[in-house]
Write a protein that binds this DNA or RNA. Structure first.
Lengths: 224, 224
DNA sequence: TTTTTTATGATAGTATTACTATTATTTTGA
DNA sequence: TCAAAATAATAGTAATACTATCATAAAAAA
């Protein structure tokens, strides 16, 4: 028995809510597996259709194109991390402790607590690390931002910035620090794996713990 | 009269050195203009050929594909920033002052000092901001890294990490901080322009100065 | 249950992209 | 001035990113 969380995502991202049908959920599930496997550039709806024994045309009824699907996945991730943080900080008052939990959620995201049976949060995290920024680094950002496609990211950052300000009310860069912690977490994990000379994090079992420690150290220096 | 710097880039990136011929230099020049204009996804060799009154086939003699061309541009940028830092810190001994110059070079990169007549460093910087990470966020990273395609980035970061260690020999994260300063500079400028709720930097004339100030503040807190 | 609606599948087709190949022409430079 | 190299012109192919149409199956409404 799994906890069923219905993640709330901006309706404009999809043509038809994939959470509402078996085919839709299959699209999400296997798009994560396939993007992880072949990378976003080589990923396409034809290959995805083959994986799930469906057709290109059927997938196009859910998403306008693979870019929209990526925004969907990334938004799911942002929403999922927000959710994780919310439940894990629910009974916590100390904002310093809260920020530690936030950092832990940025770095580990999924290690535990799979929310449902069609989204593998672990794999989704690794897509986030390699492909995440491609969701908003496009010519269409401004238009898509206008339609609210990145709302989940902004909400997450706003929440984190709030905690930062609770710790240090006069700190001048709460939003910058919040987005930097998120981006750093992904960047440094990516570098550890692929471009190790750009980071001090070593590609080992405990690299997540190392990144966590590093981010905690940095925030402590900046805020305490 | 312009200073002619021959930027040294890994030979594997191109099939034929574009710096050595008028067509090659034209390819570089107009690829920068065109990518800035239409974005990397919509950019292709056919459009580029039209811009320079040449042909697709001719461009393919210089670069295997548009991805290789992006790596070339990004490597140019990394090499250019390294060069800028080198000449601007040449007579400086104080590593703190050096790091300030490094940060200034990360943020402004080009504002002054155009090195030659076919690379517009200003536009190249803005490509770096929007498209830069796409050069190494691909399925081929490991293979390309093996061929030394990202050497210029690593050299830049190694140099900066060295300065960081000169300031604070016991600091545990010199490489992480170096790459973070570089990435933050680009990310925060991008956010200021397109996703302002993710940053404290305001999209104004002096946003570069703001980012510079912010990065100096952060490094000071972490290292001094 | 029957009918109607909706979702999906099967198939086909188009425009664009990302190349490769071939031959002609121009440029360079020995 | 002749040979070699670089570029242009042209054509062609396989894959991609869709769109359209119609058949069928499943779900919902009557």
């Amino acid at each position: 028995m799994s906890i069923e969380i219905k993640i709330s995502l901006n309706e404009g991202i999809y043509l038809k809510d994939p959470q509402d049908s078996p085919l839709g959920r299959n699209i999400i599930k296997h798009s994560i597996l396939l993007i992880e496997d072949v990378g976003f550039e080589a990923f396409n709806f034809k290959k995805l259709a083959q994986e799930i024994n469906s057709t290109e045309a059927s997938i196009y009824r859910y998403f306008e194109n693979k870019h929209a699907l990526l925004i969907y996945l990334v938004s799911w991730y942002w929403a999922w991390v927000s959710y994780l943080i919310k439940i894990n900080t629910m009974n916590i008052d100390d904002p310093k402790k809260k920020l530690e939990i936030i950092i832990n959620s940025f770095v580990l995201a999924s290690m535990d607590n799979p929310s449902n049976d069609y989204v593998d949060e672990n794999k989704l995290h690794s897509i986030m690390i390699s492909e995440g920024t491609k969701a908003y680094r496009t010519k269409g950002v401004d238009e898509e931002n206008g339609k609210g496609f990145f709302k989940n990211y902004k909400e997450l950052i706003t929440m984190v910035a709030g905690v930062i300000l609770d710790i240090a009310p006069t700190f001048e860069y709460p939003y910058t620090l919040a987005s930097t912690l998120f981006e750093m977490s992904n960047d440094q994990l990516y570098f550890a794996k692929h471009l190790p000379r750009l980071t001090d994090i070593k590609e080992k079992e405990n690299k997540y713990a190392e990144v966590e420690k590093m981010l905690n150290y940095i925030t402590a220096k900046l805020l305490y």
